[in-house]
């Protein structure tokens, strides 16, 4: 039975339920959020329908600019760290036996699925004074006494790299599996060391994949909303944290919605860049 265009109205029937669900529970809420971002906030956590740009005007403050700048910088740093760590890892993983691959993939998926609450809790334990990593260093004689490593920027960064690393590997995995193994073989036959073959053949061949992965991990890291709260100080809060904070604790839904709309625009712009990077990759 070949694919064919729908003949009768009845042929559309299977589409009805998914289309309705996605429209009612995704498109409509999305629209609601956009609408609320233009609403007027009332004292006491309520808001009334209006069409004002007040919520967007608040973006022009130095505080907001600082948070936005920090969020973007943090996400870029996480993306670079993850890709630098994950690229050689994934490359070597794809060249291993199937069984080893499956074990690593199961482990990576398990960590990827972990709640941010749990990752935050685990790292705050590891960075704590009483149960943390500094105790090991003290035992080894490297440090004189145990101390807490959190809250700090380093802790936020480590936690977010931990969260995004499995994601990075899984994004890189399909592209690296499909990479023609004869490329490196040729380089090796011509006398390149494995390291040189990796940097002069594999990395350039994957330039577009790397760009696309950087952007995807960047978006992923932008979404982190609990780790900056659990492992950092208030100055390490990101846009995602601020949105949650405004929506839940400050009860300022219109402002939270405006920030969310802004975050969507940033994300969509980046997705568009990924698609363009991907197109170029196919053409090359």
């Amino acid at each position: 039975m070949r694919r064919e265009p729908p003949q009768t109205l009845g042929d559309y029937a299977p589409l009805l339920f998914p289309a309705a669900m996605l429209t009612i529970f995704f498109v409509v809420p999305f629209g609601t959020m956009i609408a609320v971002s233009f609403f007027q906030r009332q004292q006491g956590g309520f808001y009334t329908p209006a069409f004002v740009f007040d919520n967007y005007a608040r973006f022009l403050s130095a505080f907001f600019g600082g948070v936005l700048g920090f969020s973007l910088l943090l996400a870029i740093t996480v993306a670079i760290c993850c890709v630098v760590l994950a690229l050689p890892f994934t490359y070597m993983l794809t060249r291993m036996g199937r069984k080893v691959q499956v074990v690593w993939l199961v482990a990576l998926l398990s960590i990827l699925s972990l709640s941010e609450v749990i990752i935050g809790f685990a790292w705050s334990t590891l960075f704590s004074r009483t149960a943390g990593i500094t105790n090991i260093l003290v035992a080894l004689g490297i440090m004189s006494e145990a101390k807490a490593l959190t809250p700090s920027f380093g802790a936020v960064l480590t936690g977010m790299v931990y969260q995004a690393f499995p994601y990075t590997v899984l994004v890189l995995f399909p592209a690296l599996v499909r990479l023609d193994p004869t490329l490196t073989e040729a380089a090796r036959t011509l006398g390149a060391s494995p390291l040189k073959a990796f940097f002069t053949v594999v990395v350039p061949a994957l330039r577009n994949t790397i760009t696309a992965t950087l952007i995807m991990v960047f978006i992923f890291a932008l979404g982190s909303y609990l780790l900056p709260q659990l492992l950092g100080r208030p100055q390490h809060w990101t846009l995602s944290v601020l949105i949650t904070d405004q929506a839940i604790y400050q009860s300022n839904m219109p402002f939270a919605a405006a920030m969310a709309v802004f975050l969507v625009l940033v994300t969509l712009g980046l997705v568009a860049l990924t698609v363009i990077a991907g197109r170029k990759g196919e053409a090359a």
Binding site: P18, F25, V28, P29, L222, Y225, I243, A257, V271
Partner: peptide, 23 residues
């Protein structure tokens, strides 16, 4: 609809969450 199905997962989760909260 395929695109709509993939969108909530691609966007930062706080956006889907806030959209559903307002809804």
């Amino acid at each position: 609809f395929q695109l709509l199905g993939v969108a909530p997962f691609t966007l930062p989760p706080v956006i889907t969450a806030l959209g559903l909260l307002t809804f």
